Computed example of a mutant assay.
Amino acid sequence: MRFELMLPHQIRDAIERNLPVLLPLGVLEYHGEHMAVGMDMLAVTRILDRLEQELDIVILPQFAYGAASYAVERPEGAGSVHVGADKILPIAEEIFFSLLRVGFRNIHGFIHHQTENFTAGMPTDLAFKLAGRQAIFRFLETQYGEGWWGSDRMRDYYTQHDEGIDPFNWICVHPLMDEKITQKYPFDHAGIGETSLMMALAPEVVDRDRFGDNSGWYTESAKDASAELGEMGVGLILDRLKELLVRDAT
């Protein structure tokens, strides 16, 4: 279900069923001459299009204006749009706080940009991770007042924490591809891995005739990309998302 298309009774039903609420996160960034600047965003949104056919989920409107950086290419004529993490943070916190106010308690952000070292984090995912934590603290204090954690209602906090059901799991941010996937599928920037994903998910944004126009080292393997390889990656991602979201909904 698309959140913007839902009626209030459907929203209440989703809350009652604790359905996963998914926020696609991305950036607009140069991905070589052969591929669209929205690749990172499209990887998430097109995967969720497929996931929606298999699971009951709520998909929020995408947030595409992440911290792309200009590390790959200058923006002039190349298309990268960079919004600093410090600017993203307050917006992200307001988004998450509002979703908690609505009543959702199973919120997940998914991002593909710069997630090769997700544990350490990069500006966009770090902004949303911190925003999620701050939104939860703010919401709980708004609802229960100062001292909420020390109150008797939180007596079983550590048990809840061990079971993964404490309030700080209400909002989670995940990489689209975790380490287990990247051990089986190439993770790169505009190379064989990402180009193959787009050939499978959004073939209209890949132009094979432009491979020869590339000059960056990171695009050298793109010529070996295929939709078949991309479908393998899609399958790995979908399997992980289904396992993750079904587990967290219980």
Rank of each mutant, 00 (worst) to 15 (best):
V205E: 09
P203V: 07
L22S: 10
G66N: 01
R12M: 09
V206S: 01
V206H: 05
V205Y: 08
L236A: 07
E73Y: 07
V81W: 05
I91H: 02
W149F: 15
L176D: 10
F97C: 02
Q53E: 15
M122A: 14
D224I: 04
A78K: 15
E4G: 00
H9W: 00
E194A: 07
V206E: 07
G233Y: 02
L245E: 06
G103V: 12
N214H: 10
V21Q: 03
M6I: 05
M177Y: 06
L100H: 08
G132Q: 04
L244C: 09
Q134V: 03
R2W: 03
A120P: 03
P167L: 06
M177W: 02
Q114S: 12
A67D: 04
T119F: 14
G212V: 00
R208I: 01
E29G: 01
T124K: 03
N169W: 09
Y218A: 13
S69R: 11
H34N: 12
A36L: 09
D209Q: 15
P20L: 12
A43L: 12
I15M: 09
G26V: 05
P203D: 02
E220I: 12
W170G: 02
R240N: 08
W149D: 07
K223R: 15
F97L: 14
A64D: 02
N214S: 13
L140H: 08
E76T: 08
A43G: 04
G150A: 14
A78L: 14
E94Y: 02
E4H: 04
G150K: 13
A200C: 08
V44C: 05
L22T: 03
E220P: 00
H9P: 01
D152V: 10
L7K: 15
A227W: 01
T219N: 11
A78N: 12
D13H: 05
Y144K: 14
S221A: 13
T124E: 04
W148R: 05
L51F: 07
M199I: 06
H161A: 12
G233S: 11
I136E: 00
A135C: 08
L7Y: 06
